Computed example of a mutant assay.
Amino acid sequence: MKPVVSALNAWSCVVISVFAIVILSVLGSLFSSNNHAYTGSEGEPEDGPAVAASIYVAVLVYAGFLVFCGFQVFLHRRASRGGAISLN
Rank of each mutant, 00 (worst) to 15 (best):
T39W: 02
G70S: 10
L8T: 15
A53G: 03
V4K: 14
M1N: 11
S41C: 07
V73E: 06
P45N: 02
V67D: 02
S6I: 04
I85T: 12
G82A: 06
V26M: 10
Y62N: 14
H36I: 13
A50W: 08
C69G: 06
S32Q: 14
F68P: 01
H36E: 15
V5T: 11
S86P: 01
A52D: 00
R78V: 15
S32T: 04
A20Y: 05
R77N: 11
P3T: 06
A20N: 05
A63Y: 09
S12N: 15
S6K: 05
F65L: 12
E42L: 11
F19R: 06
V15E: 09
A53E: 02
N9C: 14
S80T: 10
V59S: 04
V26G: 06
S80Q: 14
G83L: 10
S80G: 07
G82Q: 05
A20M: 07
V4A: 12
L24M: 14
R77D: 06
H36Q: 14
I16C: 08
P45R: 00
F19E: 06
A37G: 11
E42N: 09
C13M: 15
P3R: 06
G83V: 12
P49T: 00
F74P: 03
A53F: 02
S17M: 03
G40H: 04
G82S: 03
P45T: 00
L87S: 12
W11P: 07
V18R: 04
L66P: 02
N34H: 04
H76G: 08
G70C: 09
S29P: 01
S54E: 07
C69F: 13
L66N: 03
P3V: 09
M1H: 13
S12A: 14
L8A: 15
A20P: 01
Y38G: 00
L87R: 13
H36D: 13
V14T: 07
F31P: 03
I85G: 07
G64C: 10
S33W: 03
N34Y: 03
G83P: 07
L60P: 01
G48N: 01
V5Q: 04
H76C: 12
A63D: 02
A10E: 09
S86M: 08
V57D: 10
S12R: 13
R81L: 15
E44Q: 12
G40R: 06
N9S: 15
I21V: 13
